[in-house]
């Protein structure tokens, strides 16, 4: 793939000032309240060591005896623990697909993914959340972890600019690695086209239910949505951008219809899997403006508030 002229080359091209200003009012949220390493700025639904009482639960062996409510023991002769709402920080994990298939389409899916990641990361950083970014692709898994605070914005941007979309995604391994190396609970946003030969189920299964509130943002370029409208017709030899596989096709109206059914089937299967696993699946056409995506779509789906 030759170097594109419209690819972002500076952090400012990933996220501009007006967008940053509009994002300053947002914060990352979760349908769950996560436990963090340090007490954060938000109330977690996890009972912890705060002053605000939350609930009681029966004592089990191993519980900290300091939280036993001895008053109740005196009245009921049974041991109960006092549970308190704990203030936690949020861990935001951005998983960016850097496979070859992302570097395709107009607008480019990879560029779009980086801009969205930059925006989300900026929201997380300005709200003092713990932000981690992982790029997975043909050249392996590239992590950038432990970022917190607005000052790490440029680090995140530069890290995104350094990413290249090449080769196979290695999605399963990447997700498993991210899940194993997680630090606390949080929100994971997967930015990918989910065009994986082995499927996305195994990888998503690795992160779902492991303390992540997962958002799967499926990026779809216009060429993928309707190839017939973008000059794809006749006898062609398709070359897969990831593995170079060549496939000879005769693009007819029937073939386009079949392709359309295949895209719907693929998206439907991914959405149904995500629903079953508690993952939020958001199909994102790359023609959608980034600010509209963040300020409208993702707010409606609870990722931002």
């Amino acid at each position: 793939m030759s170097e594109r002229t419209d690819a972002p080359r500076t952090v400012d091209q990933l996220i501009d000032g007006p967008l940053m200003a509009r994002l300053d009012a947002l914060d990352v949220t979760s349908r769950k309240i996560f436990q963090g390493k340090v007490q954060g700025e938000r109330r977690s639904r996890r009972r912890g060591q705060s002053v605000e009482f939350a609930d009681f639960r029966p004592y089990v062996a191993g519980d900290d005896l300091r939280f036993v409510d001895w008053n109740i023991y005196g009245r009921l002769d049974r041991l109960f623990l006092k549970l308190f709402l704990e203030e936690e920080d949020l861990s935001l994990v951005l998983a960016i697909d850097c496979s070859g298939s992302m570097d395709w389409g107009t607008p480019n899916k990879f560029d779009y993914a980086r801009r969205v990641a930059m925006a989300l990361g900026y929201v997380g950083l300005v709200n003092h959340n713990r932000v981690s970014a992982f790029g997975f692709g043909g050249d392996g898994l590239h992590p950038l972890t432990g970022m917190r605070g607005r000052r790490r914005t440029r680090d995140l941007g530069q890290w995104l600019l350094d990413r290249k979309a090449v080769g196979d995604a290695g999605f399963d391994d990447a997700m498993r690695t991210i899940a194993l190396g997680r630090q606390g609970r949080g929100v994971m946003v997967v930015l990918s086209d989910f065009l994986f030969r082995d499927g996305a189920e195994k990888g998503l299964r690795s992160v779902a239910g492991r303390g992540f509130d997962v958002y799967a943002l499926q990026l779809v370029s216009p060429e993928e949505r309707d190839p017939g409208q973008h000059g794809l017709t006749g006898d062609l030899r398709f070359i897969d951008s990831e593995d170079g596989t060549e496939v000879e096709m005769t693009i007819t109206s029937k073939a386009l219809e079949a392709y359309g059914r295949a895209t719907i089937t693929h998206a439907t299967a991914l959405r149904e899997f995500c629903v079953r696993r508690g993952i939020v699946h958001v199909p994102v056409p790359t023609t959608t403006p980034v600010d509209e995506l963040l300020l409208d779509y993702l707010r409606k789906r609870g990722l931002l508030r």
Binding site: L195, L236, R237, D240, E248, M249, A262, T263
Partner: peptide, 26 residues
């Protein structure tokens, strides 16, 4: 014999190979 077809790079041949019947053995 295979047709001499023009080459076209696509993001992935995944969805094509699943449904389209005009697939030719390489």
């Amino acid at each position: 014999l295979r047709l001499r077809r023009p080459k076209r790079t696509v993001a992935s041949t995944l969805l094509w190979t699943r449904q389209v019947e005009d697939l030719r053995a390489n």
